[in-house]
Amino acid sequence: MMLSHVAHLLPLEMKKLLESLPAEVKGTLEEIRIRENRPLEIAYRDGFRFIAPDGAMKLQADGAFKPTAEHCRKLLERITNYSLYAMEEELRRGYITVSGGHRIGLAGRTILDGGVVRGIRDIGGFNIRIAREVIGAASHLLPKLMDAAKATIGSTLLLAPPQQGKTTLIRDIARSLSYGLAGGLNRAAQAGKKVGIVDERSEIAACVRGIPTFDIGPRTDVMDACPKAEGMMMLLRSMSPEVLIVDEIGRQEDADAIREASHAGVSVVATAHAYDIQDALARPELYKLIKEGAFSHIVELRRSADGIMHRIINAGALQPQAAKREHSTGASALSLAGMGRGRNEEL
């Protein structure tokens, strides 16, 4: 039941209203959007709906339940533990992570300090994103990414548009590697790996005060709310990881840090926002990294009705193509060798 994870944060009236929804809606709830004096909205498996005061779900906004200023204030108090003053960093970033890894995005009037956003005040919009931890989400994919010779995971780049399960997947990759569940191939690979996660947006491990609220394995260290490139370098220097996990790379510094890691013999599992491999190759930093062979696998992810679909592209096969791109762009990556198709367990 997804609603029950966050129900304790909601004001009583709203909690009762949402609890009156059908069980399947509550069970597949993804987002609750609360905007002051505007219709209450939820997103679940079948899309978004507005909620009427009698609990009916509508596609039209008129007649929907409207949270009052009082509701919003109570909600804000609950999610900040009555301590907005202790949330300066979170307000600068625009969201608050609560225990359980749920993330509450905030919208309101920003406070500027020398042109830099220092925080948000007059908060009038909340987006409660219910985090789902899917233990075993990576169990189909992971064995295909293992490098038998080095007895560790090969460097991997996961590509998908937002909301396709990238974070869920790398969280489970971190967990599996850390516990040593990924082996299968040989004994050495079955030993748990030292995993370092750079969790810039607190989504992978969902740390609350530095303690991960998701199970990310016993040998995993997390740099929470840390800029990716800097975090990777810090972990490399201080925690001697065997595998580095990082979300949403794409900038020059990220690429440099990934190069540094691969020189140090550390495998990197990274994700990037991209629709597919062509989309990724159109981004200069990703293109360079792929061309240099920084990744041994590139995986495209799609969420379907049955779960997360993946397609593995062997990066070795990409390199000539990447080189060719310098002369002619737009070559089809769909005809690549080393393509595999697999299906994960249902979410």
């Binding site: 204030r73 804000l76 108090e77 900040t80 009555y82 301590s83 907005l84 003053y85 300066e88 307000l91 925080g119 005040r121």
Partner: peptide
């Protein structure tokens, strides 16, 4: 006022 504004304000 307690709890609902930033540190300076509190």
């Amino acid at each position: 006022t307690l709890g609902i504004s930033d540190k300076e304000d509190q």
